[in-house]
Nucleic acid binder design. Structure first.
Lengths: 716, 716
DNA sequence: CGGATTGGCACCTATGTGCGAACC
DNA sequence: CTGGTTCGCACATAGGTGCCAATC
């Protein structure tokens, strides 16, 4: 019932900014929608065969439309749609029926990515994240600002990182190329924010960071880190779940937000020197590798000489002093994307002559696979300095072109009236959001470049961007959908909002917590003190083109000792499948080239000005409770999901590309080989799956045995 | 009903090891029991006037007897006794009635102090804890090992630090002297372990540390740190609450454990050089102050000379190498008490000639106040080195003597049969416990000094100890009680176990969370990784004399931003009084002089051997479910507790020394001036209270406003 | 003046970073 | 040999310690 209402608005707004059209909702099968991004997860879906049977009409599907389609499919199947969303009644109504948490709380979460500018800088170059055996943090820290939550209700915030496609990459000739089919996907782990559960008020008080989430390539990791495959592309996802207990996670509705600009390729060693330099210039822990203002690398090599180097080591104070001069000196939190014109300008330029030339030559020429499109897009040209001058960005004309294109997903079938879902509503919402961001930036003391906001136009820099980076296969179509919210989204993601799951509590316990959850216990460090997150980029708000990416979200939870220790979740090893294949789609403003406080930037900002001006950090501000960005969708899992066999059946019926015959949920969730969407054949990956199963089992047993040994709890 | 059963066992065991007598349970008033240690907390007690009216018969009361007395008093007053404890039915019964957490879960918590030997070393000298504006950790880290919890039930573990008496101290002539009445007590804060709530299984998996708890003297602290008065004596307390939500804390039963050897005097600067040296020798973070094996301080001063010092600074590697030589190099977690004979021997000796002579002269000569008794006790004599040779310890004969003595607290009235409560049972339990510890030590790789276990005899070193360090006033009697469990208790505390509170949920919300909770959010650091707690002392098991101390425990919770942020607890500032004055008494093995791996120590260990041999880290091991160490007691608060006036009444009726007329819970809980137990006059502290109230209010408002600014959440 | 407190300091642990050689 | 991985390293942040001179 709810979903349909929003459909029009979403489609309309999308069309206003994007050329992509959404296919008729009814025609869009959930299977494709859910399985695209993470084919391996699909088996977990509990959608009725009928709803899933339909093939994916067109890849270039608007995210919103997809969401609507999913909702429609659910409704079609007789599943209930969430009671949340659609009904604008204010939050204060809550007081009347404030039962136990959970019940009928009215909220309308809004999520914005912090340090968006920084992310955009990386995204333009093709973000790389190092993965090590011991676990590595993500550098542009994944941090979001949340608003619109019910103050008193309790929420669990978590994130996970899913495969963006099923390809393996290689960095060749200064650019990322597809190098074959993806390797078997590692068991996915959900990282529950250690503060969970906490009230909406608490979550909204300050940005929510996931600093403790670590990436690793160690398949035997026992820390609960996220295991990734090197040379593969991934997409971080953020989830909001209204639940007052981790144990209730299974019964709760997930609202998932995806920020396309945060995707990255996992590597064991940096491939693109520009990325390296960007990391060095912005990550405080890499300060040691920054140049003192001279020709960075060159100088460093020189200093490597016995005499000089020795001297430098003994003259720390001197270096530090010189270091502090520039702009980059903030702690872990992110800082200003452009380290500052003065010293920052050199970074990318000086680093590596060879690499520089090559990488910059990429331009708008699409890679073999569309996934890299956006990276080459903006055509950084020869200006290696990300901040020096705004690189070639799409002009208004270009943006317009993008908006036009989409032809599919016209108007989602069942989507009924408009009300809050009308284009108008969407527009207002977006404008309001932009205003908030703008104000927020000011409040945050990021006074620099007040006129920067308008640069939302930069969105275009990612024009080629919107299309390819997520699901390159069956899901590639959704990529276009990402752009649905294009330019003005500016960090404000769109998401599908599934309704409550109808399954009773008993079912869950019966199934057991087959999925695994990963989380860092509140334990140890960082908690006490009080360092204020320096987050310099918090209000970027300059977000250019916004793109929406929808990804399937089964429940590849991976339970770590920390999770167990702090959250009290039993670890039944492999027992059942997480029954919540809820999938959400989030559209966020995408790529925005660095925007130094140059007059040029200011001018550009002024030009686009009116569009992105609004408070960000802003306090309370009246707004629609159910913006068109949200579409409640209910996707109840079927019992079949509880067994591998059934899961396979589900995926088959849905035409998903997942073909894991494994009885273990993890396996079912794993992606093996190419999606071959619509295909049901278990293909030849069975063998692989078996071996993987073994490794996973080892992993799990390791985790279990470690529970007693893990350092976690309050270790100094 | 339950309580009585255990009485005999407790009394018997106590008698076996301690000369102190316990008065007839029924004759012992809860008022004295509860109010003694923290007079200021007493007002919060909800005991019926009748039960509390009775005066304390005899100060030299065994802890167990006291507990029994409390239980008896409660029963006498018609209060219900906890349904927990006494009924040995196994844990598996839980499965039958496993309702929502909380209900009728059968557990029998056992708590042992980690690094007991270290604590004992400090305790013998008179532990000092530095308090600073920015907050200081406790050095011997307060860490406990918990067992006997229901695996699946959820528990909240917390601790607080309460005034040990109402005196102010001064360090004069190398010893601590009472220097007048205590200053107004600061608002007490409960520090909830950040992992709370978690399942019993999780808590039992590894030692529970409270590293994040910090001490401060900053009355305006906004971090949620524990505020203490310098030059005052304090007693840390550990609490176990079975509850699956922090919000339910108010309705839950508290099981409180007190380890007398962990008491300390708060200082802004170390007074006793021996303490300083002990800290330096054992705290990894103070490595920089350790001597390279030479005359510590002397050498350092020499090096302070321009040339030398400069050299040293440039030769870190050299120093570090030398540093690693000794034994003490473990991370934050505790290490072996005796840093190692070789290098450790010098520490106390070389430090300060002047202080050395004086401090060592103290001997067994009791200080003006009995509180310092135990400190002088063991008569370290002239051997300043805590580890060099085992100080005068009780020989087997002496231990026997202790066992004989106790005549009081024969058998608590209602205490029915013996079963698990018989001396035999107690003995078995203790032996089992010792065995566990022994094994644990081995497993922990603490292979050193395998024969050390027997040194439990050291208990005696604390013989004078048991008596004075806690409540010097009305509670002094209980001190003796602490020794009740003497030698073999070895870290296994005795505790009074109040039953469930009869107050309905509604009442709480009506009152609001007047108490404040302090806790470090799971946020930030430490969580991720997996460093295994090095806890070298975990299995000490040598625990000598055990002493039990009972203290009143209202609910002086102080809510910090972290607490709020991570636990989702609303902060109603001052609204009501925490209705749970449940008081428990814990008896733990006390003082044990350092036990270096010397042949002498080994020999001693061999002598006492059989008594303390047993697994510690040990896996599952059959045991009594309701050991005599535990005595369930229900002490339901009266509504009167909710108002200051009533609280005062309560204290008055109980004859407590607290006389805070303040309407605010915090004030009521504060200790002002001397206890003058039995006195009801609000005395002249009203004025003080008023001013304090103001400061507290400021503090609270500060905390609230800070919630949004606090760094807490996941800051790098 | 002397006891208590404070703040800057050197030194330490712990951990995050990219580098570059070694390894495969 | 190449491309990818691993490991120790130097250097960074973050923060825990006692020292000591200055201050109250």
């Amino acid at each position: 019932p709810d979903v349909p209402m929003r459909e029009p608005a979403l489609a309309a707004s999308a069309m206003a900014y994007h050329p992509f059209h959404a296919p008729r909702p009814a025609d869009f099968p959930m299977s494709a929608f859910l399985a695209a991004a993470q084919p391996s997860f699909f088996p977990a879906l509990a959608l009725p065969p009928g709803a899933l049977a339909k093939p994916l009409p067109d890849p270039s599907l608007a995210g919103a439309a997809v969401a609507a389609a999913a909702a429609a499919a659910a409704a079609e199947a007789g599943l209930h749609v969430s009671a949340l969303g659609p009904h604008p009644p204010a939050a204060h109504l809550r007081s009347l029926k404030s039962l136990e948490p959970e019940d009928e709380v009215e909220d309308d979460p809004k999520v914005t990515l912090e340090a968006k500018e920084l992310w955009d800088q990386f995204h333009k170059l093709g973000t790389e994240m190092v993965i090590t055996k011991s676990g590595r943090r993500m550098f542009p820290p994944f941090k979001v600002r949340v608003s619109g939550l019910d103050k008193k209700a309790k929420y669990i915030l978590l994130m996970d990182i899913v495969a963006a496609d099923d390809c393996r990459y290689k960095f060749h000739n200064s650019r990322w190329m597809v190098a074959g089919k993806a390797d078997p996907e590692m068991p996915k782990r959900m990282y529950i924010h250690p503060d969970s559960p906490a009230t909406g008020e608490q979550w909204m008080a300050k940005p929510v960071a996931f600093h403790k989430l670590k990436l690793t390539n160690n398949i035997s990791d026992k820390h609960g880190f996220t295991i990734l495959n090197s040379m593969h592309k991934y997409q971080p996802r953020f989830h909001i779940v209204r639940a007052n207990d981790i144990l209730k996670l299974p019964y709760s509705t997930f609202r998932t937000y995806v920020f396309p600009e945060t995707d990255f390729i996992a590597v064991t060693a940096y491939q693109n020197d520009k990325i390296t330099q960007l990391k060095i210039d912005n990550n405080p822990f890499a300060k040691g590798f920054r140049d003192t203002g001279n020709g960075r690398r060159e100088k460093r090599k020189q200093l490597t000489l016995p005499s000089l180097r020795l001297y430098e080591e003994h003259c720390k104070p001197e270096r530090d002093g010189a270091d502090s001069d520039a702009s980059s000196c903030d702690p872990p939190p992110t800082r200003e994307p452009p380290p500052s014109p003065g010293t920052a300008s050199s970074p990318l330029r000086l680093h590596r002559a060879r690499a520089e030339e090559k990488s910059c030559a990429a331009d708008s020429d699409p890679e073999p696979e569309r996934l890299t499109e956006e990276r080459s897009g903006p055509a950084l040209g020869r200006s290696p300095a990300p901040d020096s001058v705004s690189p070639p960005r799409l002009t208004e004309p270009e943006r317009a072109r993008e908006r036009r294109s989409p032809e599919r997903g016209k108007e989602p079938a069942e989507s009924g009236g408009d009300g809050p879902f009308s284009l108008r509503s969407l527009e207002k919402e977006r404008v309001a959001e932009a205003r908030r961001k703008d104000e927020g930036r000011k409040e945050a003391g990021e006074g620099k470049e007040p006129g920067l906001a308008p640069l939302v136009v930069q969105t275009d820099s990612a024009s080629p961007l919107g299309a390819g980076h997520l699901p390159s296969l069956a899901f590639s179509s959704h990529l276009h959908g990402q752009q649905f919210f294009g330019p003005l989204g500016a960090g404000q993601p769109l998401f599908l909002h599934p309704g409550q799951f109808a399954m009773g509590p008993g079912a869950f316990s019966a199934m057991g917590m087959g999925h695994l959850l990963a989380s860092v216990a509140g334990s140890g460090n960082g908690g006490g003190g009080g360092p204020v997150t320096t987050a310099g980029l918090d209000a970027g708000g300059l977000g250019p083109a916004a793109s929406a990416a929808s990804t399937a979200a089964p429940f590849p939870f991976h339970l770590s000792q920390h999770m167990l220790a702090s959250q009290g979740i039993p670890m039944p090893t492999f027992g059942g499948l997480f029954p919540y294949p809820y999938t959400y789609m989030a559209a966020a403003a995408a790529a925005a080239s660095a925007l130094p406080a140059t007059s040029a930037a200011a001018a550009a900002a002024a030009a686009a000005g009116s569009l992105s001006r609004s408070p960000f950090l802003g306090s309370a501000r009246p707004r629609l409770r159910f913006s068109p960005y949200q579409i409640p969708v209910t996707i109840p899992p079927t019992t079949s999901l509880l067994t591998t066999g059934l899961a396979s059946e589900g995926s088959k019926a849905a035409g998903s590309n997942s073909r894991e015959p494994s009885p273990l949920p993890e396996l079912a969730l794993r992606k093996v080989g190419a999606p071959t969407r619509g295909t049901l054949s278990p293909s030849g990956s069975v063998k692989e799956a078996a071996s993987e199963l073994q490794s996973i089992q080892r992993l799990v047993s390791g985790l279990e045995s470690q529970r007693a040994l893990s350092p976690g709890r309050e270790s100094p």
